[in-house]
Write a protein that binds this DNA or RNA. Structure first.
Lengths: 338, 338
DNA sequence: TTGTATGCGTTATCAG
DNA sequence: CTGATAACGCATACAA
């Protein structure tokens, strides 16, 4: 591949002049033309690695997610990517599979590559508690896309999931649902927040007794959870006191609930209302289309990029928090129970 | 951030010695220890960009896909990523949205970053025909993951989709299906290959008249196609001569077919057999679980990495083709029509 | 306006 | 075994 030297020789100027043309600085017209001709002739493209070494910027950012086959992450990531390429930059994508050691490994690798910024979607609590994030954020602009906004000293964009869950409960209650099951994965802030809201609400309404068996613990938010959810739901639907509505903490699990209903001959939404969460594309196109909480995934991605731009500004590096408000979207998987 | 010079000073040796320790070359024991202590103390990590500039390798590869919200691509990509991190490398992910100009842009950007290799899943025909791929492949090891193995001079891993389609038709025919609809997207080699097989088969069996109206043209393989597929299928299912089986060119569309059936009160699989293609995770977890053609996505990803490793070997740069054999997986969305 | 010289952080070469 | 030094490709301060 050609270098700036080749162009300089071809154009009969110095490398400095070539560099100037490349960076739109003032040069004499004929030099400009000669250089541009040489560039075109040799199909020359500047070595971004060398440019990065100079120090200003590597024009690359890192995005860390948990899984690539979960559209929740990929929808946010796709929005981020759109913004990244607008800037002529590139994106390293890293999926941690929920392993905080791998997450740490990736983080240090990104640091070693001098990326301009890092966006972490669903950061692990371990690397927060042990100070890894703090350490990295000191050196590289960093943004969390998180279900929890309680961390301090970090740029965070999150969604007010308690509010979103409240909207779900208000809706279900007003539609006459009283036995409302809650389906969550094993670990995660966002599950905890929603469960708290669910409990708070039922207590507030004096819905006694609070049936503990309506809490189904399945594992994680990857496809592997689906069979677990199906089994758990099948059991639930066979009980004497069957819930009239099931809320699932993400659309993936909600789809599995619909499947379980179908397998047990329970009609959705006539005999069972199902509400999902996240408003991923699959919720829109599932059958019946899922009522769900819109997490504003595009907005999450765009805000993350805005925050990153802010974090890269040395003038005002004060961390910011942005809290988005989710909406409840009613589709065909839910109905009244009056 | 600290550099090799800081470590050298801290350890009381030269930068050369530090570099030797970093690269596991022979140094005196106490030097070794001093350097390692300094590295640990300052939490030093080598600048990968500087390493990349030296020329050997940037320890980064580029993966180009069409869409991030299609699990077909992401399952292959996830397999690739696993292999990439095993080598301590990183992955640039680029989604072209089917735009060949963007694809070209990405390609040159990756080149400018001196990536060690590029894997293109579903390369555009435009950039093949205009020589862009040839141009890039000359300078950087490149591998296609493709539905078409007819390109020459490239490393290609593909699946024998004609064979896979043949397996579908053999199965359907042997189960008594005679009116078999074929659902495809607008553009793409893989659609063409499958359609050819479908036509060949019906002609071979003398299935006259070949009902052209059983060919439904929907657009693309992104979620946006789903409503189009639903509409097209709904129309199809209302006709006098309703097909007893519908084959869809990917699982996404097949899911939409199931939805359309549900919306029209047609039972799957009792009244309609639905067969998908690709064996993405969603086919496994949809309801009813989809009969589908297993494209061996993991194997595609792994083979792509194997080919890339081969392509990076300067001894034998001869391009290779690998053709994988797909399997038909029977699940609950299909039944006999006898 | 232009060219020369230097540095970015690392590895490789060579002499010691 | 070690250290000084030259390269990698580019950008920039400085001198012309």
């Amino acid at each position: 591949m050609f270098t700036i030297k080749d162009i300089a020789k071809e154009a009969g100027v110095s490398t400095a002049t070539v560099s100037r043309v490349l960076n739109n600085k003032k040069v004499r017209k004929d030099s400009q033309e000669n250089v541009e001709a040489a560039i075109k002739k040799l199909d020359y493209r500047p070595n971004v690695i060398a440019q990065g070494l100079i120090g200003k910027t590597s024009r690359a950012i890192g995005v860390m997610i948990t899984s690539m086959t979960n559209s929740y992450y990929m929808e946010i990531t796709e929005t981020i990517e759109k913004r990244v390429i607008e800037q002529g930059a590139m994106m390293f994508l890293c999926s941690t599979k929920g392993d905080h050691l791998l997450e740490k490994e990736y983080l240090y690798n990104l640091m070693a590559r001098r990326v301009d910024g890092i966006i972490i979607i669903d950061p692990s609590s371990e690397n927060h508690d042990n100070g890894v994030f703090k350490n990295v954020a000191q050196k590289i602009p960093m943004v969390f896309v998180h279900s929890y906004s309680g961390y301090h000293g970090f740029n965070i964009v999150s969604v007010d999931q308690y509010l979103g869950m409240r909207k779900v409960m208000d809706y279900l209650w007003s539609e006459g649902h009283r036995d409302i099951a809650f389906l969550r994965g094993a670990n995660g802030f966002s599950y905890d927040i929603k469960e708290k809201c669910w409990r708070d609400f039922l207590k507030e309404k004096g819905a006694v007794p609070l049936e503990e068996n309506l809490v189904v613990i399945a594992d994680g938010n990857s496809e592997a959870a689906i069979p677990l959810v199906r089994d758990a739901c099948s059991n639930l639907l066979k009980k004497d006191r069957r819930p009239s509505a099931i809320f699932a903490c993400n659309d993936l699990m909600a789809s599995a609930v619909i499947s379980a209903a179908g397998m047990n001959g329970v009609k959705v939404p006539d005999e069972l209302t199902v509400i999902g969460h996240d408003n991923t594309v699959q919720s829109q196109y599932s059958y019946p289309p899922l009522s769900t909480v819109d997490l504003k995934l595009k907005s999450l991605g765009n805000t993350a990029m805005d925050l990153l731009a802010h974090a890269m500004n040395p003038e005002d590096p004060e961390p910011r928090k942005v809290l988005l408000e989710p909406d409840l979207i009613i589709r065909a998987s839910s109905s009244s129970n009056k």
